[in-house]
Design a protein around this nucleic acid. Sequence first.
DNA 1: CGCTTTTATGAGACTGAGTCTCGTTTGTGT
DNA 2: ACACAAACGAGACTCAGTCTCATAAAAGCG
Lengths: 145, 145
Amino acid sequence: MQPSSWAQRAALALSEAGYRQGGARRAILELLDEQECALTAVEIQGALSGRSREASRASIYRVLDELETAGMVQRVEIGRGTVRFEPVREGPGHHHHLVCERCGRLQPFTDAELERTISRLSERVPLEVSVHEIVIRGACRVCAR
Amino acid sequence: MQPSSWAQRAALALSEAGYRQGGARRAILELLDEQECALTAVEIQGALSGRSREASRASIYRVLDELETAGMVQRVEIGRGTVRFEPVREGPGHHHHLVCERCGRLQPFTDAELERTISRLSERVPLEVSVHEIVIRGACRVCAR
DNA sequence: CGCTTTTATGAGACTGAGTCTCGTTTGTGT
DNA sequence: ACACAAACGAGACTCAGTCTCATAAAAGCG
């Protein structure tokens, strides 16, 4: 059977990496799977505390670390010193971020031309590119008004 | 007389914004002007402490803030939770960043095709773009070896 | 130049995200 | 069911960044 959801694939990846399955880990995977865009560790803890299974800060950072190493989660740095994390999804889920500098709102976007440019760029650059992450800042429609 | 160096232009911009000229400010401008790429606030403080004029943390953050508002300095978020700052230079100085995920090295790069793509993208996107900043992560030549 | 006013500066308290440690709990293979 | 290794949580700790307030230094003026 093909693992269909991101959570299933992530759980599989972790177990293949030799990790066991604990309650905190399961709760975190489940929560992340429901997210469309990036969350901070603090938001994750907050969201979990309103649910059946809570998780400590230590567990959250530990699991996020493991997931990042497994390539199932990606850090998104949108500034203000706090890191955000989001599930890595293939194809249709892949996106970049627009950040409004006034209200701080985070908005996902995709652009085929940009992807083509980046993939060509990867070959010209003195770095073996693993992931790319484009953050564009400006004023969103609401704030620009 | 045309202000030739970045430091002169920055000093002018600040004085036009109504700020006075203090010792810490001058030292910070001078240091930033010598930089080719982005520094953290901590690095700035460290670099200054090996020189004639030191500056306190408060002054450094204050001056960086004023410079950012004046558009003379740009934040660069390359991760690990610490923000970097670099002088904004027109034309030839404009660049983006390659970050090595293993050793953390930061490397500036420029790419004309990328710039064209971004400028076209700016028109398609629901945001009034003020600055763009591309961070590409991967393994640098030394670490990939 | 000396005086006054106003701003810049620094010391250090404070905040909050993220890390680390270690004792306890829980999963897993036998 | 048992043993043992790994996951977990509580809380101490770190460190970048913020804030406050007393003091020092600019700038303008007589």
